[in-house]
Amino acid sequence: MLKVENISLRAGTFELSNISFEVSKGDYFVILGVSGVGKSLLLESIAGLLNTTAGKIYLRGKEISEGKIQKRKISIVYQDSDLFPHLTVFENIAYPLKSKKERGIKEKVLKAAEQVGIEDKLNRKPETLSGGEYQRVSLARSLAAGNDIFLLDEPLASLDSKSKSELRQLLRKLNREGITIIHVTHDYEEAISLANKIGVMEKGALVHIASPEEVFHHPKSEFVAHFIGTKNFFKGNLKSLSQSDLKEFTTKNLKIYCLTNAADGESYLTILPEEISLSNEIEKGSSRNHFNGKIIDIAPAKLGFEIFVDAGVELIAIVSGDSKKDLQLDIGKKVWVNFKAASCKVYK
């Protein structure tokens, strides 16, 4: 339904580079990324509010990159402050209908208001609405416009948790009723609860587009890894070794031996903190990986302590209180970090 092909643009200090993705009718595509990676720019360029410097956008098979904004039939809903403050709720919802000189405006406004549950707020001015009501009116106005692709820019960011969950329900309902949604957010729970497809955005580029399960089970960005609690997440290069069943994973000059059947080349590696042991002397055992490093931080965990060691890269180990005491682990102390090649989870 919507195909974005290699679009790039620059606006102030922000830059988008070579963004491509495709959204089918009825999709709920969530673009996930920290603030300031250019998510809003992407939405505004799809809506036609910003000019792209390269690339093409196809809507329903037709190229619209140069087309007029008002002919795109794409609505955009922002986090807040996008209702017309001088108009009532009714007038806001009626705005697109009047723009298109449609008939039966009153009935259509009422229908859209009922769809989002704000039919009793029609005479109010936007400034008197709560955060949740405000967003509902904005959605109703988009529905009234007859647009079937909604671009939502952090629509739940300024809501309390109750309104958030109610609005999520509403968004799921609208999506089931046939509205295709592209929703940008920095909230990973929001992404899981709504999306059937997620695009992870980092530094102006979409780095991973996949189903929510895939994105969260095989994170390809530190951002996602951080969210799902993966502590030791590295991006690097995997290389087979001759005369060995081990492979060598290189990240920032650190070479890690892994027992894996993943193919050589660029890959991601995670190690559970529970699988890493610390020692004052190098461990003599079945561990293949030993790195000497300095403890840079110690934090109490749910169970035991998280020890942050700088060994060229930051590695986190979980140890018990007893071990911490016996090994006299303290910030600034040099220790050995040990883990088995088999503890490394490597994927493409």
Partner: peptide, 15 residues
């Protein structure tokens, strides 16, 4: 006047 409001109005089909 926030430019955003003018842009939103355009997406709503207004000339």
């Amino acid at each position: 006047v926030p430019e955003r409001l003018e842009k939103v109005a355009l997406t709503l089909g207004a000339s």
